[in-house]
């Protein structure tokens, strides 16, 4: 992947959505674009359908919690284009005060379970998701464990010894 090829995605993205893209970088060869969360569905549709880009694989969807910074959360999408053999990372900024973001299930079906896991672990609500409930923890679990302010050793057993 030459340098020319690597920045095609970022160039086209900043041309098409100039006000949504907050920043881009290419740390260690990974194309990354930081976007605002409002137009995330349009951005994803553009990335999937544009003939130069064709990001048809949604590899990963996760959330990073930057405690102490505003916006606190970043929803990170890792995409891969099978025809062009390229990767890109999209980071959408989500503040703690408005912890919602559009769901991209209609763009890639793979996002279904990844978004459920992000909701389970961080509490980010994906609007438009057909079935947003906990996936890795039991239904009555209180709290969202991967947030930085959740203690590691807090116990929430469903069932325990009598004494």
């Amino acid at each position: 992947m030459g340098l020319m090829d690597a920045s095609v995605t970022l160039k086209k993205l900043t041309e098409k959505f100039p006000d949504a893209v907050v920043g881009t970088h290419n740390y260690r060869g990974d194309d990354t674009a930081i976007v605002k969360k409002e137009k995330i569905r349009d951005i994803c549709l553009f990335l999937r359908d544009d003939p130069d880009l064709l990001y048809n694989f949604m590899m990963d969807l996760t959330v990073v919690d930057y405690l102490g910074r505003d916006p606190r959360f970043e929803v990170v999408y890792h995409l891969y284009s099978l025809p062009h053999n390229r990767r890109v990372r999209i980071k959408a900024l989500v503040p703690e005060s408005d912890l919602t973001i559009d769901s991209v299930v209609s763009v890639w079906v793979a996002a279904d379970w990844f978004e459920r896991e992000a909701y389970d672990m961080y509490g980010v609500v994906f609007t438009g998701h057909p079935n947003l409930r906990r996936i890795l923890l039991y239904e009555g679990f209180e709290g969202h464990p991967l947030r930085k302010d959740y203690p590691l050793k807090k116990r929430q057993p469903l069932i325990g010894p009598v004494n």
Partner: peptide, 8 residues
């Protein structure tokens, strides 16, 4: 007898 557990 049964396992001595309680539901928390």
């Amino acid at each position: 007898g049964e396992a001595p557990v309680s539901r928390c």
